[in-house]
Design a protein around this nucleic acid. Structure first.
Ligand code: MN
Ligand code: MN
Ligand code: ZN
Ligand code: ZN
Lengths: 155, 155
DNA sequence: GTCCTTGTTGCGACTCTTTGCAAATCATTC
DNA sequence: GAATGATTTGCAAAGAGTCGCAACAAGGAC
Protein backbone atom coordinates (compact mmCIF):
# COMPACT_ATOMS: atom_id res chain seq x y z
CA UNK A 1 0.00 0.00 0.00
CA UNK A 2 1.55 3.31 -1.06
CA UNK A 3 0.77 6.84 -0.02
CA UNK A 4 1.79 8.76 -3.12
CA UNK A 5 -1.79 9.69 -3.84
CA UNK A 6 -2.23 10.93 -0.31
CA UNK A 7 0.63 13.40 -0.68
CA UNK A 8 -0.82 14.73 -3.92
CA UNK A 9 -4.29 15.09 -2.47
CA UNK A 10 -2.98 16.94 0.56
CA UNK A 11 -1.20 19.49 -1.59
CA UNK A 12 -4.05 19.85 -4.05
CA UNK A 13 -6.56 20.58 -1.35
CA UNK A 14 -4.38 23.34 0.00
CA UNK A 15 -3.20 21.72 3.20
CA UNK A 16 0.45 21.92 4.10
CA UNK A 17 2.59 18.87 3.85
CA UNK A 18 4.47 19.22 7.12
CA UNK A 19 7.17 16.80 8.31
CA UNK A 20 4.82 15.59 11.03
CA UNK A 21 2.06 14.80 8.57
CA UNK A 22 4.48 13.07 6.27
CA UNK A 23 5.80 10.89 9.08
CA UNK A 24 2.32 9.93 10.22
CA UNK A 25 1.36 9.05 6.68
CA UNK A 26 4.50 6.99 6.14
CA UNK A 27 3.89 5.08 9.33
CA UNK A 28 0.35 4.18 8.36
CA UNK A 29 1.45 3.19 4.89
CA UNK A 30 4.35 1.15 6.23
CA UNK A 31 2.25 -0.85 8.66
CA UNK A 32 0.38 -3.87 7.47
CA UNK A 33 -3.15 -3.78 8.76
CA UNK A 34 -4.54 -1.43 11.37
CA UNK A 35 -2.51 0.89 13.61
CA UNK A 36 -3.50 2.91 16.65
CA UNK A 37 -2.57 6.53 17.28
CA UNK A 38 -0.24 5.41 20.03
CA UNK A 39 1.54 2.97 17.73
CA UNK A 40 2.01 5.73 15.18
CA UNK A 41 3.46 7.88 17.95
CA UNK A 42 5.94 5.24 19.01
CA UNK A 43 7.14 4.82 15.46
CA UNK A 44 7.37 8.53 14.60
CA UNK A 45 9.19 9.33 17.83
CA UNK A 46 12.06 7.12 16.69
CA UNK A 47 13.08 9.85 14.26
CA UNK A 48 11.32 12.88 15.76
CA UNK A 49 10.89 12.59 19.52
CA UNK A 50 8.90 15.79 19.98
CA UNK A 51 5.73 14.82 18.15
CA UNK A 52 2.67 15.14 20.32
CA UNK A 53 -0.22 12.72 20.39
CA UNK A 54 -2.58 15.63 19.73
CA UNK A 55 -0.83 16.34 16.45
CA UNK A 56 -1.24 12.72 15.48
CA UNK A 57 -4.94 12.76 16.23
CA UNK A 58 -5.36 16.02 14.36
CA UNK A 59 -3.53 14.59 11.37
CA UNK A 60 -5.66 11.47 11.46
CA UNK A 61 -8.85 13.53 11.49
CA UNK A 62 -7.61 15.49 8.51
CA UNK A 63 -6.65 12.41 6.54
CA UNK A 64 -9.96 10.86 7.38
CA UNK A 65 -11.86 13.89 6.18
CA UNK A 66 -10.00 13.66 2.89
CA UNK A 67 -10.78 9.94 2.69
CA UNK A 68 -7.10 9.09 2.68
CA UNK A 69 -7.28 6.94 5.78
CA UNK A 70 -10.15 5.05 7.36
CA UNK A 71 -10.88 4.70 11.03
CA UNK A 72 -12.44 1.88 12.93
CA UNK A 73 -13.70 1.91 16.48
CA UNK A 74 -13.33 -1.56 17.91
CA UNK A 75 -15.11 -0.51 21.09
CA UNK A 76 -13.24 -1.19 24.28
CA UNK A 77 -9.84 -0.29 22.89
CA UNK A 78 -8.28 2.53 20.91
CA UNK A 79 -9.39 3.43 17.43
CA UNK A 80 -7.47 1.90 14.56
CA UNK A 81 -6.43 3.49 11.31
CA UNK A 82 -5.65 2.17 7.88
CA UNK A 83 -4.61 3.68 4.55
CA UNK A 84 -7.62 3.92 2.28
CA UNK A 85 -6.53 2.03 -0.78
CA UNK A 86 -7.51 -0.93 -2.86
CA UNK A 87 -8.33 -3.54 -0.26
CA UNK A 88 -11.30 -1.66 1.13
CA UNK A 89 -13.57 -3.62 3.41
CA UNK A 90 -15.72 -3.52 6.51
CA UNK A 91 -15.47 -5.59 9.67
CA UNK A 92 -17.77 -7.85 11.64
CA UNK A 93 -16.70 -7.90 15.27
CA UNK A 94 -17.94 -10.64 17.57
CA UNK A 95 -18.74 -9.37 21.04
CA UNK A 96 -18.49 -12.88 22.42
CA UNK A 97 -14.99 -13.88 21.41
CA UNK A 98 -13.54 -10.75 19.84
CA UNK A 99 -13.01 -12.40 16.48
CA UNK A 100 -13.23 -10.09 13.47
CA UNK A 101 -14.37 -11.06 10.00
CA UNK A 102 -13.64 -8.99 6.91
CA UNK A 103 -16.74 -7.95 5.04
CA UNK A 104 -16.51 -7.00 1.35
CA UNK A 105 -17.48 -3.44 0.56
CA UNK A 106 -20.36 -4.59 -1.60
CA UNK A 107 -22.44 -5.66 1.36
CA UNK A 108 -23.35 -2.09 2.12
CA UNK A 109 -23.98 -1.04 -1.47
CA UNK A 110 -27.73 -1.59 -1.40
CA UNK A 111 -28.12 0.41 1.78
CA UNK A 112 -25.88 3.13 0.41
CA UNK A 113 -27.95 3.46 -2.72
CA UNK A 114 -31.35 3.40 -1.07
CA UNK A 115 -30.23 6.16 1.28
CA UNK A 116 -29.08 8.15 -1.72
CA UNK A 117 -32.32 7.54 -3.60
CA UNK A 118 -34.85 7.91 -0.85
CA UNK A 119 -33.22 10.46 1.45
CA UNK A 120 -30.74 12.17 -0.85
CA UNK A 121 -28.28 11.30 1.87
CA UNK A 122 -24.70 10.50 0.95
CA UNK A 123 -23.61 8.13 3.71
CA UNK A 124 -20.00 7.72 4.66
CA UNK A 125 -19.60 3.97 4.56
CA UNK A 126 -15.87 3.70 4.07
CA UNK A 127 -14.84 1.36 6.80
CA UNK A 128 -17.46 0.11 9.12
CA UNK A 129 -17.47 -2.08 12.20
CA UNK A 130 -20.62 -4.04 12.88
CA UNK A 131 -20.95 -5.64 16.31
CA UNK A 132 -22.70 -8.90 16.94
CA UNK A 133 -22.17 -12.61 17.56
CA UNK A 134 -20.32 -15.06 15.38
CA UNK A 135 -21.66 -18.52 14.61
CA UNK A 136 -19.57 -20.21 17.27
CA UNK A 137 -20.63 -17.85 20.02
CA UNK A 138 -24.24 -18.27 18.97
CA UNK A 139 -23.94 -22.05 19.06
CA UNK A 140 -22.40 -21.93 22.51
CA UNK A 141 -25.53 -20.28 23.82
CA UNK A 142 -28.17 -22.68 22.50
CA UNK A 143 -29.37 -25.50 24.72
CA UNK A 144 -28.55 -24.01 28.09
CA UNK A 145 -28.07 -26.89 30.52
CA UNK A 146 -30.83 -27.09 33.12
CA UNK A 147 -28.92 -26.29 36.30
CA UNK A 148 -26.43 -23.78 34.93
CA UNK A 149 -27.03 -21.00 37.42
CA UNK A 150 -24.41 -18.82 35.82
CA UNK A 151 -25.89 -18.84 32.36
CA UNK A 152 -27.33 -15.36 32.71
CA UNK A 153 -23.91 -13.90 33.39
CA UNK A 154 -22.94 -14.72 29.86
CA UNK A 155 -26.00 -13.11 28.31
CA UNK B 1 -42.84 4.96 26.72
CA UNK B 2 -43.05 2.78 29.82
CA UNK B 3 -40.44 0.68 31.50
CA UNK B 4 -42.57 -2.01 33.07
CA UNK B 5 -41.16 -4.62 30.77
CA UNK B 6 -37.65 -3.56 31.67
CA UNK B 7 -38.27 -4.21 35.38
CA UNK B 8 -39.66 -7.66 34.64
CA UNK B 9 -36.77 -8.58 32.36
CA UNK B 10 -34.23 -7.44 34.94
CA UNK B 11 -35.73 -9.66 37.61
CA UNK B 12 -36.23 -12.61 35.30
CA UNK B 13 -32.64 -12.60 34.16
CA UNK B 14 -31.45 -12.69 37.75
CA UNK B 15 -30.13 -9.17 38.08
CA UNK B 16 -31.05 -7.18 41.16
CA UNK B 17 -33.41 -4.31 40.89
CA UNK B 18 -31.52 -1.77 42.99
CA UNK B 19 -32.76 1.74 43.72
CA UNK B 20 -30.03 3.15 41.49
CA UNK B 21 -31.03 0.99 38.55
CA UNK B 22 -34.65 1.88 39.06
CA UNK B 23 -33.89 5.59 39.08
CA UNK B 24 -31.79 5.37 35.95
CA UNK B 25 -34.52 3.44 34.20
CA UNK B 26 -37.20 5.90 35.26
CA UNK B 27 -35.14 8.81 34.03
CA UNK B 28 -34.66 7.28 30.61
CA UNK B 29 -38.31 6.37 30.40
CA UNK B 30 -39.39 9.81 31.55
CA UNK B 31 -37.30 11.69 29.00
CA UNK B 32 -38.62 12.21 25.54
CA UNK B 33 -35.95 11.36 23.05
CA UNK B 34 -32.29 10.69 23.75
CA UNK B 35 -30.49 11.33 27.04
CA UNK B 36 -26.82 11.33 27.91
CA UNK B 37 -25.30 9.66 30.96
CA UNK B 38 -24.58 13.08 32.41
CA UNK B 39 -28.20 14.15 32.00
CA UNK B 40 -29.35 11.00 33.73
CA UNK B 41 -26.94 11.82 36.55
CA UNK B 42 -28.28 15.33 36.96
CA UNK B 43 -31.83 14.05 37.16
CA UNK B 44 -31.14 11.16 39.53
CA UNK B 45 -29.08 13.33 41.86
CA UNK B 46 -32.16 15.40 42.56
CA UNK B 47 -33.47 12.59 44.75
CA UNK B 48 -30.27 10.65 45.44
CA UNK B 49 -27.19 12.89 45.43
CA UNK B 50 -24.65 10.12 45.92
CA UNK B 51 -25.06 8.29 42.64
CA UNK B 52 -21.81 7.98 40.76
CA UNK B 53 -21.39 8.37 37.03
CA UNK B 54 -19.69 4.96 36.93
CA UNK B 55 -22.83 3.33 38.31
CA UNK B 56 -24.86 5.02 35.60
CA UNK B 57 -22.54 3.78 32.87
CA UNK B 58 -22.56 0.30 34.34
CA UNK B 59 -26.34 0.32 34.47
CA UNK B 60 -26.55 1.54 30.90
CA UNK B 61 -24.25 -1.23 29.71
CA UNK B 62 -26.37 -3.77 31.50
CA UNK B 63 -29.61 -2.45 30.06
CA UNK B 64 -28.06 -2.35 26.64
CA UNK B 65 -26.91 -5.94 26.91
CA UNK B 66 -30.46 -6.94 27.76
CA UNK B 67 -31.75 -4.88 24.82
CA UNK B 68 -33.80 -2.71 27.14
CA UNK B 69 -32.14 0.52 26.07
CA UNK B 70 -30.35 1.47 22.88
CA UNK B 71 -27.22 3.56 22.58
CA UNK B 72 -26.14 5.92 19.88
CA UNK B 73 -22.73 7.42 19.36
CA UNK B 74 -23.16 10.80 17.72
CA UNK B 75 -19.38 11.20 17.43
CA UNK B 76 -17.95 14.37 18.89
CA UNK B 77 -20.26 14.41 21.90
CA UNK B 78 -21.39 11.99 24.57
CA UNK B 79 -23.32 8.85 23.79
CA UNK B 80 -27.09 9.03 23.96
CA UNK B 81 -29.52 6.50 25.33
CA UNK B 82 -33.12 5.69 24.66
CA UNK B 83 -35.62 3.16 25.96
CA UNK B 84 -35.94 0.32 23.48
CA UNK B 85 -39.62 0.18 22.74
CA UNK B 86 -42.00 0.46 19.87
CA UNK B 87 -40.62 3.41 17.97
CA UNK B 88 -37.39 1.73 17.02
CA UNK B 89 -35.36 3.46 14.35
CA UNK B 90 -31.88 4.38 13.17
CA UNK B 91 -30.40 7.79 12.52
CA UNK B 92 -28.74 9.55 9.63
CA UNK B 93 -26.44 12.27 10.92
CA UNK B 94 -25.23 15.00 8.60
CA UNK B 95 -21.63 15.95 9.26
CA UNK B 96 -22.14 19.23 7.47
CA UNK B 97 -25.01 20.77 9.43
CA UNK B 98 -25.59 18.33 12.27
CA UNK B 99 -29.13 17.56 11.22
CA UNK B 100 -30.39 14.07 12.03
CA UNK B 101 -32.95 12.11 10.07
CA UNK B 102 -34.83 9.13 11.47
CA UNK B 103 -34.40 5.98 9.47
CA UNK B 104 -36.96 3.19 9.72
CA UNK B 105 -35.63 -0.08 11.08
CA UNK B 106 -36.41 -1.87 7.83
CA UNK B 107 -33.57 -0.21 5.97
CA UNK B 108 -31.05 -2.48 7.60
CA UNK B 109 -33.09 -5.66 7.26
CA UNK B 110 -31.48 -6.83 4.04
CA UNK B 111 -28.01 -6.36 5.42
CA UNK B 112 -28.98 -8.07 8.63
CA UNK B 113 -30.28 -11.09 6.79
CA UNK B 114 -27.42 -11.44 4.37
CA UNK B 115 -24.97 -11.36 7.25
CA UNK B 116 -26.98 -14.05 8.96
CA UNK B 117 -27.18 -16.18 5.82
CA UNK B 118 -23.70 -15.77 4.46
CA UNK B 119 -21.62 -15.37 7.61
CA UNK B 120 -23.85 -16.89 10.28
CA UNK B 121 -23.26 -13.60 12.02
CA UNK B 122 -26.01 -12.15 14.17
CA UNK B 123 -25.39 -8.40 13.93
CA UNK B 124 -26.55 -6.03 16.60
CA UNK B 125 -28.39 -3.44 14.58
CA UNK B 126 -30.69 -2.01 17.21
CA UNK B 127 -30.03 1.66 16.92
CA UNK B 128 -27.51 2.81 14.42
CA UNK B 129 -26.02 6.15 13.49
CA UNK B 130 -24.83 6.58 9.92
CA UNK B 131 -22.68 9.62 9.16
CA UNK B 132 -22.75 11.44 5.89
CA UNK B 133 -24.08 14.51 4.10
CA UNK B 134 -27.68 15.59 3.74
CA UNK B 135 -29.09 16.86 0.46
CA UNK B 136 -28.73 20.51 1.40
CA UNK B 137 -25.11 20.18 2.42
CA UNK B 138 -24.39 18.29 -0.78
CA UNK B 139 -26.05 21.00 -2.86
CA UNK B 140 -24.05 23.67 -1.09
CA UNK B 141 -20.86 22.06 -2.29
CA UNK B 142 -21.59 21.80 -6.02
CA UNK B 143 -20.41 24.53 -8.34
CA UNK B 144 -17.60 25.96 -6.27
CA UNK B 145 -17.14 29.58 -7.29
CA UNK B 146 -13.87 30.22 -9.12
CA UNK B 147 -12.09 32.42 -6.61
CA UNK B 148 -13.37 30.94 -3.35
CA UNK B 149 -10.05 30.41 -1.69
CA UNK B 150 -11.65 29.09 1.46
CA UNK B 151 -13.65 26.36 -0.19
CA UNK B 152 -11.27 23.64 0.90
CA UNK B 153 -11.77 24.55 4.53
CA UNK B 154 -15.29 23.31 4.24
CA UNK B 155 -14.34 20.01 2.69
C1' DG C 1 -31.72 -14.55 63.46
C1' DT C 2 -26.46 -15.84 61.86
C1' DC C 3 -23.34 -17.31 58.41
C1' DC C 4 -21.83 -17.42 53.83
C1' DT C 5 -21.75 -16.31 49.04
C1' DT C 6 -22.43 -13.30 45.39
C1' DG C 7 -23.74 -8.94 43.23
C1' DT C 8 -23.49 -3.96 43.40
C1' DT C 9 -21.93 0.64 44.65
C1' DG C 10 -18.89 4.75 45.31
C1' DC C 11 -14.58 6.33 44.96
C1' DG C 12 -10.24 7.23 42.94
C1' DA C 13 -7.10 6.41 39.44
C1' DC C 14 -6.51 5.71 34.80
C1' DT C 15 -6.99 5.63 29.45
C1' DC C 16 -8.19 7.61 25.26
C1' DT C 17 -9.31 11.64 22.80
C1' DT C 18 -10.33 16.53 22.21
C1' DT C 19 -9.63 21.49 22.90
C1' DG C 20 -7.62 26.30 24.04
C1' DC C 21 -3.83 28.84 23.52
C1' DA C 22 0.68 30.91 22.67
C1' DA C 23 4.66 30.10 19.93
C1' DA C 24 6.41 28.63 15.66
C1' DT C 25 6.10 27.86 10.73
C1' DC C 26 4.76 28.69 6.19
C1' DA C 27 2.85 31.26 2.02
C1' DT C 28 1.95 35.72 -0.07
C1' DT C 29 2.58 40.32 -1.16
C1' DC C 30 5.18 44.20 -1.46
C1' DG D 1 14.12 39.98 2.01
C1' DA D 2 10.77 42.21 5.45
C1' DA D 3 6.03 42.59 6.67
C1' DT D 4 1.70 40.43 6.96
C1' DG D 5 -1.76 36.96 7.64
C1' DA D 6 -3.08 32.13 7.91
C1' DT D 7 -2.02 27.49 9.36
C1' DT D 8 0.12 24.18 12.30
C1' DT D 9 2.44 22.56 16.37
C1' DG D 10 3.44 21.34 21.36
C1' DC D 11 1.90 21.67 25.72
C1' DA D 12 -1.36 21.59 29.33
C1' DA D 13 -5.89 20.94 30.75
C1' DA D 14 -10.39 19.13 30.19
C1' DG D 15 -14.01 15.52 28.70
C1' DA D 16 -15.81 11.07 28.26
C1' DG D 17 -15.70 6.60 29.71
C1' DT D 18 -13.54 2.47 32.18
C1' DC D 19 -11.52 -0.31 35.84
C1' DG D 20 -9.79 -2.10 40.47
C1' DC D 21 -11.04 -2.36 44.84
C1' DA D 22 -12.86 -2.16 49.50
C1' DA D 23 -17.26 -1.49 51.66
C1' DC D 24 -21.89 -2.53 51.47
C1' DA D 25 -26.42 -4.84 50.40
C1' DA D 26 -29.16 -9.04 49.12
C1' DG D 27 -30.32 -13.74 48.94
C1' DG D 28 -30.05 -18.47 50.39
C1' DA D 29 -29.08 -22.16 53.78
C1' DC D 30 -29.35 -23.45 58.21
MN1 MN E 1 -9.87 -2.66 8.17
MN1 MN F 1 -32.93 7.29 18.47
ZN1 ZN G 1 -17.57 -15.12 18.61
ZN1 ZN H 1 -26.49 18.78 6.30
Amino acid sequence: MHHGKALTTLKETGYRLTPQRLMVLETIAGARGHVTAEEIGTQVRRTYPYIDIATIYRTLHLLKRLHLVTEIDPGGSSAQYELAGDGRHHHLICEGCGKTIDLPLAYLDNLHQSLRREFEFEADLDHFALRGRCSQCLAARTGTPRKDRNAWKRL
